[in-house]
Design a protein around this nucleic acid. Sequence first.
DNA 1: AGTATTCGTAAGTCATGACTTACGGACAGA
DNA 2: TCTGTCCGTAAGTCATGACTTACGAATACT
Lengths: 102, 102
Amino acid sequence: MTYGQKIEALAVPTRRAVLERLIEGPASVGEIADGLPVSRPAVSQHLRVLKDANLVRETKHGTRHIYSLNAEGFQDLRAYFDQFWDGALAALQTAVKASEEQ
Amino acid sequence: MTYGQKIEALAVPTRRAVLERLIEGPASVGEIADGLPVSRPAVSQHLRVLKDANLVRETKHGTRHIYSLNAEGFQDLRAYFDQFWDGALAALQTAVKASEEQ
DNA sequence: AGTATTCGTAAGTCATGACTTACGGACAGA
DNA sequence: TCTGTCCGTAAGTCATGACTTACGAATACT
């Protein structure tokens, strides 16, 4: 829900690998784990974190749990970065101005 | 240098607080630490991480080390996110198309 | 020279969380 | 019903790193 939660979700390499796998399309837990050097339960735990951060969605087909990217969560994160960068850019402009006046 | 390094630098709340302080303008280590609930050495260590990630610059005036935001590092990070989101968006489009054809 | 600031680093503590294996539940198919 | 598959959770291990205090180096000021 918070920005920090999303950023911290992205900070773990294995979780980024999971997300990059999901860019290629929705996948089940087992399918995701097959492409990674960690166990299936580990992937399951990472998916829980990503789901709590709203970066991923879950739909159940029989015993298979299919995960896919959640655009909404990514947009929120992008909004935060845009806001941060706007602030940073303004600060840098001010700094340039101040050093010119100096 | 790597994207992971930058993202992991942003993942720690105290480091985000340091960066948000720097949006308001360049500051010395002591000034930054005064506004945070951690010790000065802790801030010094965080600044080292941020500097290694190219998110921050250091200039020395006497005994004071002045830190400021580094736009270059943030642009690299933004490029990564843009690329990721473009891929994610394309994936979502494909998913919609596939579900329509189904 | 002597003192005071400002800072980085060393060393050590401690919580967090990324992993593992073991287990049990839920659904599909014979 | 029984077996096999797919998955989440519990419990425990272990490395990482975010903090602390203590110290010493570098510069400024008198």
